[in-house]
């Protein structure tokens, strides 16, 4: 028995060493592969900065980044798989709801890196296929010239106040409201009623988040009901007269990393994921994008900003299955 316990202890001692030793073989492998193909929803400016930081540690890997929306990436993964082409290694943000299909088709592989342990449990797949790197926190925001801080909204319900009639904007993107309708959050009926009451305030319909924040800063309207927190913070840093409302709950749509089962550069891919989820990589992504994970204890700018507020993370499967509800909300808002 004692022998078994001793062997067990010995194994525990050896395991971390084995894990630490793994990158050496990976490093050698990556040196031979030289390249990595990374598809991401991150812009090329941001991606380029992240790659530069990665290359400080691993200068021998040439990371090729291709930028597209999550939908386009998901579509391209699917199309290449059907055509039996295997060009990509890792993807960030290929639409989480499609992951089950991708796993079922044998397109993805399980992976684990030490840094995965530090990610909040809500941000990782229990089966080991994906880990969330960051994403958009969605909040109401207001123009500080048009709205004195004493009158600033403090809850979603505050947006229903008749004093905002005609001074409010919503975007054409109704998905955040569907996230708010998820089980455990507001659920459908409450959101339906809320949106119906919001319509009484005659919101202006704005096509897309970029335009909404830009026009909010320009003073075209006083309040934007649901915009990306990092964009508001980005413009605030530049001196724009806007701020965001600390409401409960805030909404979050995450972007996750996945790894191709047929990755042409598996070792470089491992180094990349290992580095991205290390403290160094985490910090780099957060500094460069401002869109690090908002989960408690993540230590990112978004996590710090929403400290003390509750949040609802997007359940992609739910959003996908409730596209009819999304259409209904669009109709109530007068978008279609």
């Amino acid at each position: 028995m004692k022998i078994f316990i001793s062997l067990g202890l010995l194994l525990l001692l050896i395991l971390p060493t084995a894990q630490a030793a793994a990158p050496d073989s990976r490093i050698e492998g990556a040196k031979r592969e030289k390249r990595l193909v990374w598809w991401a929803t991150l812009s090329s400016t941001e991606a380029n900065e992240v790659i530069k930081r990665f290359n400080r540690r691993y200068p021998f890997v040439d990371v090729e980044h291709w930028r597209a929306t999550g939908e386009v990436i998901a579509e391209k993964i699917w199309a290449e798989f059907h055509a039996k082409r295997h060009t990509w290694d890792v993807v960030l943000g290929g639409e989480n709801r499609k992951f089950p299909d991708l796993i079922k088709a044998g397109i993805l592989q399980k992976w684990s890196v030490p840094g995965r342990a530090n990610v909040h449990k809500q941000g990782k797949d229990p089966n080991g296929y994906w880990v969330v790197m960051g994403g958009n926190v969605i909040v109401p925001a207001y123009n500080t010239t048009l709205v004195p801080s004493s009158q600033a909204p403090r809850s979603w319900e505050d947006l229903l106040d008749p004093k905002w009639k005609g001074k409010l904007a919503v975007t054409t993107d109704v998905k955040p409201w569907v996230v708010l309708a998820q089980p455990g959050a507001w659920e459908k009926e409450k959101v339906r009623k809320y949106i119906s009451r919001l319509v009484a305030n005659k919101p202006q319909i704005i096509n897309g988040h970029t335009q909404a924040v830009a026009l909010l800063a320009a003073g075209e309207f006083a309040i934007a009901a649901e915009v990306y927190l990092y964009r508001v913070r980005m413009l605030m840093k530049k001196g724009a007269p806007i701020d965001w409302a600390r409401v409960n709950p805030v909404l979050f749509t995450g972007s996750a990393f996945i790894l191709s089962k047929n990755a042409p550069h598996p070792n470089a891919a491992y180094l990349w994921l290992d580095w991205i989820f290390s403290d160094e990589g985490n910090k780099a992504v957060d500094e460069i994008t401002g869109k690090g994970n908002p989960f408690p204890g993540s230590g990112t700018q978004q996590a710090e900003a929403i400290k003390g507020l509750s949040y609802v993370g997007r359940d992609d499967g739910y959003v996908y299955q409730n596209s009819e509800f999304a259409n209904e909300l669009s109709r109530i808002l007068g978008i279609q």
Binding site: E95, T172, D173, V319, Y320, S323, I335
Partner: peptide, 9 residues
């Protein structure tokens, strides 16, 4: 446009 922007398109 809205059909194209929908998830999934």
């Amino acid at each position: 446009y809205l059909a194209k922007e929908a998830i999934p398109p």
